[in-house]
């Protein structure tokens, strides 16, 4: 980090103002959602900002929403989709990542293979909506959580491949070499030596994959109709027909976006690496 001269008082004030404005900008929507979720309908349009001091909060809306079977179902579906897709993609991706880091392929060089994995992120998902819809209809997998797990796993697979192959490359080769000289197989060198060393990275990648799958909306909208509906689909567009009920919007929005945001806070150290597909280290 760059060492600059200590700030003057005026400089400190400017820095303080920028931080406060940036934080207000970033955090306001979250607070607004929370505020609405605990306001009584009658208080909704009052410009009051502090619970207990300016208005009496209520947890009624949270209870009411969580009692709705469709919402519970959607929370379960979202969890299954997120955990399922991440748990499929991360092992597959870890193996491929190790291959890219430790082997040199003749037919296709490693650079092209990496680019090929990356290129999966370039494809516009809407291109896949039609074939997936028609194919899933044919095999009877419309409106199934299973289908969404498979699709999400496919589209997040580049993340573990790219991120983890970098982490494997950063490990010293000598450890695995020594083990193999002592008679360990390549697979043992991988599973007993390399793998444990990248566990933090694997966990972080798993979290990032889970968050992305949880947030996925296009395929979920196209392929679910009743039983498999996850949270992002249940909230989309409902209010346009019923009129806006701010208090329920607040609860549903938080139920949907708190799990991925909180999980992502745990993967802090790896987020820059994850979001740039390994190109920039955080």
């Amino acid at each position: 980090m760059r060492k600059k001269k200590p700030l003057s008082l005026a400089g400190k004030i400017v820095v303080g103002i920028v931080i406060i404005v940036a934080l207000l900008w970033v955090l306001f929507p979250f607070y607004w959602a929370f505020l609405n979720s605990i306001k009584k309908p009658a208080d909704t349009f009052q410009p009051t900002w502090i619970p207990y001091l300016q208005f009496t909060p209520t947890w009624e809306h949270w209870k009411a929403e969580l009692a709705i079977p469709e919402i519970r179902r959607a929370l379960i579906n979202s969890t299954l989709i997120g955990v399922g897709a991440a748990s499929l993609a991360v092992p597959l991706g870890t193996l491929a990542a190790y291959a890219l880091a430790r082997f040199r392929f003749r037919r296709f060089d490693n650079g092209s293979l990496t680019t090929w994995f990356l290129s999966q992120r370039v494809m516009p998902p809407v291109l896949f909506v039609i074939p997936f819809f028609l194919l899933m209809r044919q095999v009877g997998l419309l409106d199934s959580v299973f289908a969404l797990i498979l699709l999400n796993a496919t589209f997040i697979l580049p993340f573990p491949v790219i991120i983890l192959s970098q982490m494997f490359r950063e490990l010293p080769l000598e450890l695995e070499d020594a083990a193999m000289v002592d008679g360990a197989s390549r697979f043992q060198a991988f599973s007993q030596i390399a793998l444990p060393l990248v566990v933090p990275g694997i966990v972080a990648t798993w979290i990032i994959c889970l968050a992305f799958s949880w947030n996925e909306f296009l395929f979920a909208l196209a392929l679910t109709s009743k039983d498999a509906i996850p949270m992002p689909v249940i909230i989309a567009g409902a209010e346009h027909t019923r009129g806006v009920q701010f208090w329920f919007v607040g609860v549903r929005v938080l139920l949907t976006m708190l799990p991925p945001t909180i999980l992502a806070l745990l993967a802090q150290r790896y987020i820059v690496r994850g979001l740039t597909l390994g190109a920039v280290k955080g």
Partner: peptide, 21 residues
Amino acid sequence: ALMTLPLFATPVAVGYLGITL
């Protein structure tokens, strides 16, 4: 850390919240 929050906030949910904002 706080700046990472919007990145992982479900986009549909943010749009939906936008109706009230």
